[in-house]
Nucleic acid binder design. Structure first.
Length: 287
DNA sequence: AAATTATACAACCGCCGCATT
DNA sequence: CAATGCGGCGGTTGTATAATT
């Protein structure tokens, strides 16, 4: 699949190209993919030239694509080859049963967001996950359909995709914060506490959900597993919220503040037992 | 054994959001 | 503010290999 001298190579990568790319990544690190084709296949001294010379190099490389000595590949091809194949962190071999289980669960939650799904499977790439799903999981579902003409009447998937919903709300649609008694209503507290969801607000009165510990895998998972019913419940609470209850709650105009809600089973109220003005807004989950 | 079909997965394409110019 | 370039993503295709006829 050799193209003309001015076009970039396509198709399968050769060993030589792989070597050039690996050496380039080892030398310069990942990223800056637009620079990779010109960097790969050159020795260090070439890149100690002055800025102007490097610019000339780049132009020349664009024209010549380093015909024989360098890597005649576009930036996207380089990135793809590295992220999907050459990266030493990639795990090879068949998917384990627990990995498959996780893929199915995450796909139910996230839909075809392969990069997100792969992000929870160490060593697996989005392409791997996508390929695996399409070849091993989708076909099984389709094959189970009894419809003789799937083109006219496509089979209904046996799984339901629940897409995550953004949970950032304006002050006037948010039900949680009450007045000086530092209490929140029962239903909201129950939902929040059972999902370990925290609430945060900045000085513009924009209130957001966040997860309590972004480094805690179990927490992350628990919160993601919040099902559609629970989300509906929460949204419903928000829709029925009376904004007047917010009036007594003062947001420090200088500092950002955040709260953590825990359900108190004794009086069935969610006590606002943590409130800190540390100037640091909790990491917002979604925008 | 040869031809055909199915499968697996590497790679490409077009689009998008974001940052920079 | 528009244009441009970049990194990244998901859908789709291409192709080598395996399985079947």
């Amino acid at each position: 699949m050799e193209g003309s001298s001015l076009s970039v190579r396509k198709g399968a990568w050769t060993e030589k190209e792989d070597t050039l790319l690996k050496e380039c990544i080892e030398k310069y690190g990942e990223g800056k993919w637009h620079k990779v084709p010109s960097r790969a296949g050159k020795n260090n001294s070439d890149f100690k030239k002055n800025k102007q010379m490097r610019k000339v190099d780049l132009i020349l490389n664009k024209m010549m694509r380093l015909k024989s000595a360098g890597l005649n590949r576009c930036r996207k091809s380089c990135r793809l080859r590295w992220t999907n194949y050459l990266n030493p962190n990639i795990k090879r071999g068949a998917f384990a049963a627990d990995e498959v289980d996780l893929i199915i669960r995450l796909h139910n939650l996230l839909g075809n967001r392969w990069s997100l799904i792969a992000g929870r499977l160490p060593g697996r790439t989005a392409n791997d996950v996508k390929n695996y799903f399409n070849t091993h999981l989708v076909k099984k579902k389709v094959a189970s359909s009894s419809d003789p003409n799937p083109h006219l009447n496509p089979p209904t998937p046996s799984f339901r995709v629940i897409k995550p919903r953004p949970l950032i709300l304006s002050k006037n649609s948010f039900p949680v914060i009450l007045g000086e008694d530092k209490k929140i209503n029962t239903t909201t507290a129950t939902t929040l506490a059972s999902n370990n969801i925290s609430v945060s607000a900045n000085s513009d009165n924009n209130i957001s959900y966040c997860f309590p510990d972004e480094n805690n895998e179990v927490m992350w998972w628990d919160n993601l597993m919040m099902n559609e019913k629970e989300v509906d419940y929460l949204q419903d609470s928000m829709n029925n919220f009376n904004p007047s209850v917010l009036e007594d709650w003062h947001i420090n105009e200088e500092l950002e503040c955040s709260t953590t809600c825990n359900l108190d089973e004794e009086d069935n109220y969610g006590n606002l037992d943590e409130l800190y003005l540390d100037g640091e807004l909790w990491n917002v989950f979604n925008q």
